[in-house]
Design a binder for these strands. Structure first.
Length: 324
DNA sequence: CATCAGGGCCCTG
DNA sequence: CAGGGCCCTGAT
Protein backbone atom coordinates (compact mmCIF):
# COMPACT_ATOMS: atom_id res chain seq x y z
CA UNK A 1 0.00 0.00 0.00
CA UNK A 2 1.34 3.40 -0.97
CA UNK A 3 0.88 6.67 0.86
CA UNK A 4 -2.48 8.30 1.35
CA UNK A 5 -4.47 9.61 -1.60
CA UNK A 6 -6.23 12.95 -1.26
CA UNK A 7 -9.94 13.13 -2.05
CA UNK A 8 -10.45 16.86 -2.61
CA UNK A 9 -13.60 16.78 -4.72
CA UNK A 10 -16.74 17.05 -2.64
CA UNK A 11 -20.47 16.77 -3.22
CA UNK A 12 -23.00 17.50 -0.49
CA UNK A 13 -26.65 16.79 -0.09
CA UNK A 14 -29.17 16.47 2.70
CA UNK A 15 -30.92 13.17 3.37
CA UNK A 16 -34.29 12.99 5.07
CA UNK A 17 -34.67 9.71 6.94
CA UNK A 18 -38.16 8.61 7.84
CA UNK A 19 -38.84 9.85 11.39
CA UNK A 20 -38.10 8.81 14.02
CA UNK A 21 -34.40 8.41 13.24
CA UNK A 22 -31.72 8.09 15.91
CA UNK A 23 -28.49 9.24 14.29
CA UNK A 24 -25.77 8.16 16.70
CA UNK A 25 -27.01 4.65 17.52
CA UNK A 26 -27.53 4.01 13.82
CA UNK A 27 -24.16 5.12 12.46
CA UNK A 28 -22.17 3.79 15.40
CA UNK A 29 -22.46 0.36 17.00
CA UNK A 30 -20.21 0.24 20.07
CA UNK A 31 -20.01 -3.56 20.04
CA UNK A 32 -18.24 -3.62 16.65
CA UNK A 33 -14.49 -4.02 16.63
CA UNK A 34 -12.57 -0.83 15.80
CA UNK A 35 -11.52 -0.57 12.17
CA UNK A 36 -9.44 2.08 10.42
CA UNK A 37 -11.96 2.46 7.59
CA UNK A 38 -14.41 4.39 9.75
CA UNK A 39 -14.54 6.89 12.60
CA UNK A 40 -17.22 8.29 14.83
CA UNK A 41 -17.82 11.27 17.06
CA UNK A 42 -21.24 12.17 18.46
CA UNK A 43 -23.20 13.70 15.61
CA UNK A 44 -20.59 12.95 12.98
CA UNK A 45 -19.42 9.86 11.16
CA UNK A 46 -16.73 9.10 8.58
CA UNK A 47 -16.19 6.05 6.42
CA UNK A 48 -14.65 5.04 3.14
CA UNK A 49 -16.69 3.37 0.45
CA UNK A 50 -15.81 1.43 -2.64
CA UNK A 51 -18.60 1.45 -5.19
CA UNK A 52 -18.54 1.10 -8.95
CA UNK A 53 -14.74 0.78 -8.98
CA UNK A 54 -14.30 4.14 -7.25
CA UNK A 55 -12.87 4.84 -3.80
CA UNK A 56 -14.80 7.53 -1.93
CA UNK A 57 -14.86 9.19 1.43
CA UNK A 58 -18.25 9.55 3.09
CA UNK A 59 -19.28 11.71 5.98
CA UNK A 60 -22.66 11.79 7.67
CA UNK A 61 -23.47 14.72 9.92
CA UNK A 62 -26.49 15.01 12.14
CA UNK A 63 -28.33 18.26 11.46
CA UNK A 64 -31.69 17.27 12.85
CA UNK A 65 -33.44 15.58 15.74
CA UNK A 66 -35.00 12.17 16.25
CA UNK A 67 -38.40 13.50 15.23
CA UNK A 68 -37.18 15.89 12.54
CA UNK A 69 -34.22 14.02 11.12
CA UNK A 70 -31.84 15.67 8.70
CA UNK A 71 -28.55 14.09 7.72
CA UNK A 72 -25.94 15.88 5.67
CA UNK A 73 -24.18 13.45 3.35
CA UNK A 74 -20.81 14.47 1.91
CA UNK A 75 -19.13 12.39 -0.75
CA UNK A 76 -15.42 12.95 -1.36
CA UNK A 77 -13.44 11.66 -4.32
CA UNK A 78 -10.19 12.14 -6.21
CA UNK A 79 -12.08 13.70 -9.09
CA UNK A 80 -15.60 14.63 -10.08
CA UNK A 81 -18.20 11.87 -9.78
CA UNK A 82 -20.97 11.66 -12.38
CA UNK A 83 -24.49 12.33 -11.21
CA UNK A 84 -25.70 8.76 -11.66
CA UNK A 85 -22.87 7.42 -9.50
CA UNK A 86 -23.69 9.94 -6.77
CA UNK A 87 -27.28 8.81 -6.80
CA UNK A 88 -26.08 5.23 -6.42
CA UNK A 89 -24.07 6.27 -3.34
CA UNK A 90 -27.11 7.98 -1.83
CA UNK A 91 -29.30 4.94 -2.40
CA UNK A 92 -26.63 2.64 -0.99
CA UNK A 93 -26.20 4.74 2.16
CA UNK A 94 -29.96 4.87 2.63
CA UNK A 95 -30.22 1.11 2.29
CA UNK A 96 -27.26 0.27 4.48
CA UNK A 97 -28.49 2.51 7.30
CA UNK A 98 -32.11 1.38 6.83
CA UNK A 99 -33.03 5.06 6.64
CA UNK A 100 -36.48 4.91 5.06
CA UNK A 101 -37.87 1.93 6.94
CA UNK A 102 -40.96 2.30 9.09
CA UNK A 103 -40.55 0.62 12.49
CA UNK A 104 -43.72 2.06 14.05
CA UNK A 105 -45.42 -1.38 14.18
CA UNK A 106 -42.49 -2.68 16.25
CA UNK A 107 -42.54 0.30 18.59
CA UNK A 108 -46.27 0.17 19.28
CA UNK A 109 -46.37 -3.59 19.66
CA UNK A 110 -43.71 -3.69 22.39
CA UNK A 111 -44.27 -0.33 24.06
CA UNK A 112 -45.41 -2.10 27.24
CA UNK A 113 -42.88 -4.92 27.12
CA UNK A 114 -41.15 -4.99 30.52
CA UNK A 115 -37.64 -5.40 29.14
CA UNK A 116 -37.91 -3.87 25.67
CA UNK A 117 -40.35 -1.03 26.35
CA UNK A 118 -37.90 1.36 28.04
CA UNK A 119 -35.24 0.62 25.40
CA UNK A 120 -37.63 1.54 22.61
CA UNK A 121 -37.97 4.93 24.26
CA UNK A 122 -34.25 5.40 24.84
CA UNK A 123 -33.23 4.27 21.35
CA UNK A 124 -36.32 5.25 19.38
CA UNK A 125 -35.28 5.57 15.75
CA UNK A 126 -32.21 3.32 15.93
CA UNK A 127 -31.81 1.37 12.69
CA UNK A 128 -30.13 -1.84 11.69
CA UNK A 129 -27.08 -0.68 9.86
CA UNK A 130 -24.01 -1.91 8.07
CA UNK A 131 -21.27 0.20 6.59
CA UNK A 132 -19.83 -2.33 4.16
CA UNK A 133 -20.84 -4.20 1.02
CA UNK A 134 -21.66 -7.91 0.99
CA UNK A 135 -18.20 -8.82 -0.26
CA UNK A 136 -16.61 -6.66 2.41
CA UNK A 137 -18.76 -8.23 5.10
CA UNK A 138 -17.50 -11.66 4.08
CA UNK A 139 -14.03 -10.42 4.95
CA UNK A 140 -15.32 -9.07 8.27
CA UNK A 141 -17.07 -12.38 9.04
CA UNK A 142 -13.92 -14.29 8.19
CA UNK A 143 -11.64 -12.33 10.49
CA UNK A 144 -14.21 -12.61 13.28
CA UNK A 145 -14.31 -16.39 13.13
CA UNK A 146 -12.50 -18.26 15.87
CA UNK A 147 -10.65 -15.16 16.98
CA UNK A 148 -10.59 -12.71 19.85
CA UNK A 149 -11.11 -9.00 19.22
CA UNK A 150 -7.41 -8.18 19.28
CA UNK A 151 -6.62 -10.80 16.69
CA UNK A 152 -9.58 -9.76 14.52
CA UNK A 153 -8.30 -6.20 14.51
CA UNK A 154 -4.79 -7.33 13.70
CA UNK A 155 -5.89 -9.45 10.73
CA UNK A 156 -8.21 -6.74 9.46
CA UNK A 157 -5.55 -4.04 9.60
CA UNK A 158 -2.93 -6.32 8.02
CA UNK A 159 -5.29 -6.88 5.10
CA UNK A 160 -5.98 -3.15 4.74
CA UNK A 161 -2.25 -2.42 4.71
CA UNK A 162 -1.50 -5.01 2.06
CA UNK A 163 -4.54 -4.84 -0.24
CA UNK A 164 -6.40 -1.69 0.68
CA UNK A 165 -5.58 1.98 0.30
CA UNK A 166 -5.38 5.05 2.49
CA UNK A 167 -7.39 8.14 1.66
CA UNK A 168 -7.60 11.62 3.16
CA UNK A 169 -10.84 13.59 3.25
CA UNK A 170 -12.50 16.04 5.59
CA UNK A 171 -9.35 16.18 7.71
CA UNK A 172 -9.29 12.41 8.29
CA UNK A 173 -7.06 9.67 6.97
CA UNK A 174 -8.80 6.30 6.73
CA UNK A 175 -8.29 2.90 5.14
CA UNK A 176 -10.38 1.75 2.21
CA UNK A 177 -11.27 -1.75 1.07
CA UNK A 178 -9.89 -3.46 -2.00
CA UNK A 179 -11.82 -5.02 -4.84
CA UNK A 180 -12.24 -8.82 -4.73
CA UNK A 181 -9.95 -9.04 -7.77
CA UNK A 182 -6.98 -8.07 -5.60
CA UNK A 183 -7.46 -11.05 -3.28
CA UNK A 184 -8.37 -13.44 -6.06
CA UNK A 185 -5.09 -12.58 -7.79
CA UNK A 186 -2.92 -13.08 -4.71
CA UNK A 187 -1.50 -16.32 -3.35
CA UNK A 188 -2.46 -18.15 -0.20
CA UNK A 189 1.13 -17.80 1.00
CA UNK A 190 0.97 -14.02 0.74
CA UNK A 191 -2.25 -14.00 2.72
CA UNK A 192 -0.82 -16.30 5.35
CA UNK A 193 2.03 -13.88 5.84
CA UNK A 194 -0.63 -11.49 7.15
CA UNK A 195 -1.32 -13.87 10.05
CA UNK A 196 -4.77 -14.86 8.87
CA UNK A 197 -3.92 -18.57 9.15
CA UNK A 198 -6.33 -21.05 7.56
CA UNK A 199 -8.60 -18.12 6.66
CA UNK A 200 -6.29 -17.45 3.69
CA UNK A 201 -8.11 -20.13 1.73
CA UNK A 202 -11.50 -18.74 2.76
CA UNK A 203 -10.61 -15.20 1.70
CA UNK A 204 -9.44 -16.36 -1.71
CA UNK A 205 -12.41 -18.60 -2.39
CA UNK A 206 -14.88 -15.97 -1.22
CA UNK A 207 -13.55 -13.43 -3.70
CA UNK A 208 -13.99 -15.76 -6.68
CA UNK A 209 -17.76 -15.61 -7.25
CA UNK A 210 -17.62 -11.81 -6.98
CA UNK A 211 -14.86 -11.61 -9.57
CA UNK A 212 -16.87 -13.86 -11.86
CA UNK A 213 -19.86 -11.57 -11.40
CA UNK A 214 -22.03 -14.32 -9.96
CA UNK A 215 -23.17 -12.38 -6.93
CA UNK A 216 -25.45 -9.40 -7.34
CA UNK A 217 -26.06 -7.85 -3.93
CA UNK A 218 -29.07 -5.69 -4.86
CA UNK A 219 -30.67 -8.76 -6.45
CA UNK A 220 -30.14 -10.82 -3.29
CA UNK A 221 -31.93 -8.16 -1.26
CA UNK A 222 -35.19 -9.17 -2.95
CA UNK A 223 -34.92 -12.88 -2.14
CA UNK A 224 -37.12 -14.60 0.47
CA UNK A 225 -35.32 -15.58 3.70
CA UNK A 226 -34.87 -19.27 2.92
CA UNK A 227 -33.41 -18.68 -0.54
CA UNK A 228 -31.17 -15.91 0.68
CA UNK A 229 -29.83 -18.13 3.44
CA UNK A 230 -29.11 -20.86 0.93
CA UNK A 231 -27.09 -18.49 -1.24
CA UNK A 232 -25.17 -17.08 1.73
CA UNK A 233 -24.25 -20.44 3.27
CA UNK A 234 -23.14 -21.65 -0.15
CA UNK A 235 -20.36 -19.06 0.01
CA UNK A 236 -17.16 -20.70 1.17
CA UNK A 237 -16.44 -20.07 4.83
CA UNK A 238 -19.95 -18.83 5.59
CA UNK A 239 -21.76 -21.07 8.06
CA UNK A 240 -24.73 -20.60 10.38
CA UNK A 241 -23.16 -17.90 12.57
CA UNK A 242 -21.89 -15.67 9.77
CA UNK A 243 -25.07 -16.22 7.74
CA UNK A 244 -27.14 -14.98 10.65
CA UNK A 245 -25.12 -11.79 10.99
CA UNK A 246 -25.50 -11.26 7.25
CA UNK A 247 -29.24 -11.96 7.15
CA UNK A 248 -29.84 -9.46 9.91
CA UNK A 249 -27.29 -6.71 9.46
CA UNK A 250 -26.70 -6.75 5.73
CA UNK A 251 -30.13 -7.81 4.52
CA UNK A 252 -32.37 -6.39 7.27
CA UNK A 253 -34.26 -9.58 8.08
CA UNK A 254 -35.65 -8.53 11.48
CA UNK A 255 -36.97 -11.97 12.38
CA UNK A 256 -33.65 -13.76 12.17
CA UNK A 257 -32.30 -15.00 15.48
CA UNK A 258 -31.84 -18.73 15.30
CA UNK A 259 -28.24 -19.30 16.28
CA UNK A 260 -26.36 -18.31 19.40
CA UNK A 261 -22.54 -18.19 19.47
CA UNK A 262 -20.99 -19.12 22.86
CA UNK A 263 -20.08 -15.64 24.04
CA UNK A 264 -23.50 -14.24 23.12
CA UNK A 265 -25.00 -17.17 25.00
CA UNK A 266 -23.25 -16.04 28.17
CA UNK A 267 -24.38 -12.45 27.72
CA UNK A 268 -28.03 -13.30 27.00
CA UNK A 269 -28.00 -15.70 29.96
CA UNK A 270 -27.24 -12.71 32.18
CA UNK A 271 -29.64 -10.33 30.48
CA UNK A 272 -32.67 -12.59 30.25
CA UNK A 273 -32.22 -15.06 33.10
CA UNK A 274 -29.77 -13.39 35.45
CA UNK A 275 -27.73 -16.57 35.37
CA UNK A 276 -24.21 -17.48 34.21
CA UNK A 277 -25.04 -20.02 31.55
CA UNK A 278 -28.42 -21.09 30.22
CA UNK A 279 -28.49 -23.66 27.38
CA UNK A 280 -28.59 -21.97 23.97
CA UNK A 281 -31.85 -23.62 22.81
CA UNK A 282 -33.63 -22.33 25.93
CA UNK A 283 -32.40 -18.80 25.24
CA UNK A 284 -33.44 -18.92 21.60
CA UNK A 285 -36.86 -20.26 22.56
CA UNK A 286 -37.29 -17.50 25.15
CA UNK A 287 -36.43 -14.82 22.60
CA UNK A 288 -38.75 -16.35 20.04
CA UNK A 289 -41.66 -16.58 22.45
CA UNK A 290 -41.22 -13.00 23.69
CA UNK A 291 -40.69 -11.18 20.41
CA UNK A 292 -41.79 -13.55 17.63
CA UNK A 293 -41.23 -12.19 14.15
CA UNK A 294 -39.42 -9.18 15.58
CA UNK A 295 -36.93 -11.20 17.61
CA UNK A 296 -33.83 -10.23 15.67
CA UNK A 297 -34.60 -6.54 15.95
CA UNK A 298 -35.60 -6.89 19.60
CA UNK A 299 -32.32 -8.63 20.37
CA UNK A 300 -30.47 -5.85 18.54
CA UNK A 301 -32.05 -3.15 20.72
CA UNK A 302 -31.19 -5.09 23.87
CA UNK A 303 -27.65 -5.77 22.69
CA UNK A 304 -26.88 -2.23 21.58
CA UNK A 305 -28.35 -0.75 24.74
CA UNK A 306 -26.06 -2.96 26.78
CA UNK A 307 -22.94 -1.86 24.88
CA UNK A 308 -23.88 1.84 24.92
CA UNK A 309 -24.35 1.62 28.67
CA UNK A 310 -21.09 -0.25 28.99
CA UNK A 311 -19.37 2.50 27.02
CA UNK A 312 -20.83 5.16 29.31
CA UNK A 313 -20.02 3.30 32.50
CA UNK A 314 -18.23 -0.06 32.37
CA UNK A 315 -20.38 -3.06 33.35
CA UNK A 316 -18.07 -5.46 35.23
CA UNK A 317 -19.73 -8.75 34.29
CA UNK A 318 -19.78 -7.71 30.64
CA UNK A 319 -16.16 -6.58 30.69
CA UNK A 320 -15.24 -10.04 31.95
CA UNK A 321 -16.99 -11.65 28.97
CA UNK A 322 -15.45 -9.46 26.29
CA UNK A 323 -12.23 -11.20 25.41
CA UNK A 324 -9.65 -8.84 24.08
C1' DC B 1 8.34 -24.74 28.60
C1' DA B 2 3.54 -26.86 27.23
C1' DT B 3 -1.30 -26.52 26.69
C1' DC B 4 -5.56 -24.43 25.57
C1' DA B 5 -9.46 -21.88 23.90
C1' DG B 6 -11.03 -18.21 21.26
C1' DG B 7 -17.21 -13.85 18.57
C1' DG B 8 -16.63 -21.13 13.17
C1' DC B 9 -16.41 -23.74 9.34
C1' DC B 10 -15.10 -27.54 6.36
C1' DC B 11 -14.66 -32.17 5.73
C1' DT B 12 -14.79 -36.89 6.84
C1' DG B 13 -16.64 -41.14 8.56
C1' DC C 1 -24.80 -35.73 12.68
C1' DA C 2 -20.56 -35.73 15.56
C1' DG C 3 -16.06 -34.51 16.01
C1' DG C 4 -11.27 -33.56 14.52
C1' DG C 5 -8.38 -30.13 12.42
C1' DC C 6 -7.19 -25.63 11.32
C1' DC C 7 -3.75 -20.51 12.09
C1' DC C 8 -2.28 -17.52 15.48
C1' DT C 9 -2.11 -15.36 20.06
C1' DG C 10 -2.25 -14.42 24.82
C1' DA C 11 -3.53 -16.55 29.23
C1' DT C 12 -2.45 -20.00 32.51
Amino acid sequence: MSRAIALPWCYETVLSPLAPFHFDSTVHKPDYYPSSDNAYEPGRYWQTMRLGGRVMGITLANEGTVDQPRVRLSVYAAEEIPCAALQAVEREIEFRTDMQVDLSAFYSRYADDPLLGPLLVRWRGMRVSTYVSLYEYLVVATVLQNATVRRTVQMSENLFRRYGSRVVFDGRELSAFWDPEAIAATSEEELRALKVGYRAKHLKRQAEPFVRGEIDEPELRALPDAELRKVLTSLYGIGPASAMYLMFGQFKRYDVFDHLPPWEQKIYSQLLFDRDLVPAPAILEEIRSRWGEWRGLAAHYIWEDLFWRHRQEPIPWLAALIRL
